[in-house]
Design a protein around this nucleic acid. Structure first.
Length: 124
DNA sequence: CCGTTGACGTCGG
DNA sequence: ACCGACGCCAACG
């Protein structure tokens, strides 16, 4: 286990349920702002308990991946969505809805509950 | 040590 | 809004 991998995992473990973070975010928090792709590689391996990998998504709220297309876990994306939705994160066909609202940030641990979504659409 | 690879990101078409 | 071309980085062979 390399230093980089440890740091990435450490950050991912801090993502609370109902919240998400992008690969880029994790990379930055891990000290390697341009290593988003590498973060993905780490996630691919690291399928360990205690690591909420399903909360790590792609930029802009895109789902990203969740299991190699040639792996036994290949329909993982469906699972990823299920897990997110189970935590209260609304997921569209190909995107997390209200992405900016559920996007996690380490510092302000105050956000008690997941912003949920309620009203199908509601201005501010 | 160098070339390839891949759960990514950004810009253009 | 969707698809494709580059760019970037760490891991692997």
């Amino acid at each position: 286990m390399t230093e980089f991998q440890r740091r990435v995992i450490a950050v991912v473990r801090r993502i609370p349920p109902g919240r998400v973070a992008t690969y880029g975010d994790i990379a930055a928090l891990a000290g390697a702002p341009r290593a988003a792709r590498a973060v993905g590689t780490v996630m691919r391996d690291c399928r360990q308990p205690g690591v909420p990998a399903h909360r790590v998504i792609a930029a802009g709220g895109a789902l990203g991946g969740y299991g190699a297309s040639n792996s036994p876990g290949a329909g993982g994306l469906a699972l990823k969505r299920a897990l997110l939705r189970a935590e209260g994160v609304e997921v569209g066909p190909s995107r997390v809805r209200g992405f900016d609202r559920v996007r996690w940030s380490p510092d302000r641990a105050r956000h008690k509950r997941p912003p949920a979504t309620r009203g199908t659409k509601r201005p501010v």
